[in-house]
């Protein structure tokens, strides 16, 4: 289980201005201009990232992805949490 707490009702994102994103054949890659650090995302992480625009809480992101993947939120909650935690740890998102 990741360190992201659903007790907070904060919305995730949007990313800070030093983060630049680009799509490579449908997958997202992120560039941290302050640290000159790149994170290349796979398809699932890309889908999560695209929902980190400040409109959704972690729970809502999980629900939307579960609907999109035609699975239950419980099935993917850990993966979403861990991915969001990595975005924060790597400096691509501020903690909400």
């Amino acid at each position: 289980m990741g360190g992201v707490s659903y007790a907070t009702s904060g919305r995730v994102g949007p990313p800070p201005p030093h983060v630049i994103e680009t799509e490579v054949a449908g997958d997202v890659s992120l560039y941290d201009a302050r640290r000159e650090y790149v994170l290349v995302l796979n398809r699932t992480a890309s889908d999560i990232w695209l929902l980190c625009d400040g409109d959704f809480t972690p729970a809502e992101i999980t629900d939307r992805l579960a609907s999109s993947y035609q699975t239950s939120p419980a099935e993917i909650r850990n993966d979403v949490d861990e991915t969001l935690e990595e975005f924060v740890t790597e400096g691509f998102l501020d903690q909400w």
Partner: peptide, 27 residues
């Protein structure tokens, strides 16, 4: 494609000279 992008950046000689340009170009 993202594997190719990662390889291009990882194996670049000089991405540090202009990181953002290298990122966009590799993409």
């Amino acid at each position: 494609a993202h594997e190719a992008m990662a390889a291009l950046l990882r194996l670049s000689f000089n991405h540090y000279k202009d990181g953002e340009r290298a990122f966009r170009l590799a993409a």
